[in-house]
């Protein structure tokens, strides 16, 4: 990811900041500047909302492939997390044995390194998830 794109998205990636449409109440993450349901009625009115970081596993997969930058972490769990606010977030589940992950498992967001742009590039930080309790 190029530096400016990561930099633009840092607030939402660090602190799970999305947006809410004041017309229909739908919450979006990543943030949207226009609600796709309400269209022009939402323009200029979208409100920032911070997600709680809580959620449940909606679906997941265990990655065994040698994905560049993730070889040291495999096998690792990529999941879709259903949040109480509405949006479904994609993220890694860490600090857990992959075989213990199951659909419906309660998780919460933690702050981790997501990727590194080689040895000399920037370190991208953001959210991953860990189980609430095993």
């Amino acid at each position: 990811m190029v530096v400016p794109r990561f930099w633009r998205e840092r607030r939402s990636r660090y602190s799970l900041i999305g947006t809410r449409c004041p017309v229909c109440g739908t919450v979006y993450f990543p943030p949207r500047s226009v609600c796709p349901k309400c269209g022009r009625k939402s323009v200029g009115k979208m409100e920032e909302v911070q997600l709680s970081g809580k959620g449940k596993v909606y679906s997941y997969t265990i990655v065994h492939q040698n994905v560049i930058g993730y070889k040291y972490q495999k096998p690792y769990v990529m999941a879709i997390i259903e949040t109480p606010e509405g949006p479904k977030l994609t993220g890694q589940i860490v600090d857990v044995e992959p075989e213990k992950v199951h659909i419906g498992m309660p998780v919460h967001a933690v702050f981790r390194r997501i990727a590194e742009d080689g040895k000399a590039g920037i370190i991208q930080y953001g959210y991953k998830f860990i189980p609430d309790e095993e």
């Binding site: 933690v110 702050f111 981790r112 390194r113 370190i123 930080y125 991953k128």
Partner: peptide, 16 residues
């Protein structure tokens, strides 16, 4: 520290 943890991630978790 896990592979994806460093002094900054530890600082953020402690602060939270």
């Amino acid at each position: 520290p896990a592979y994806d943890e460093d002094a900054a991630t530890i600082a953020v978790e402690a602060l939270r």
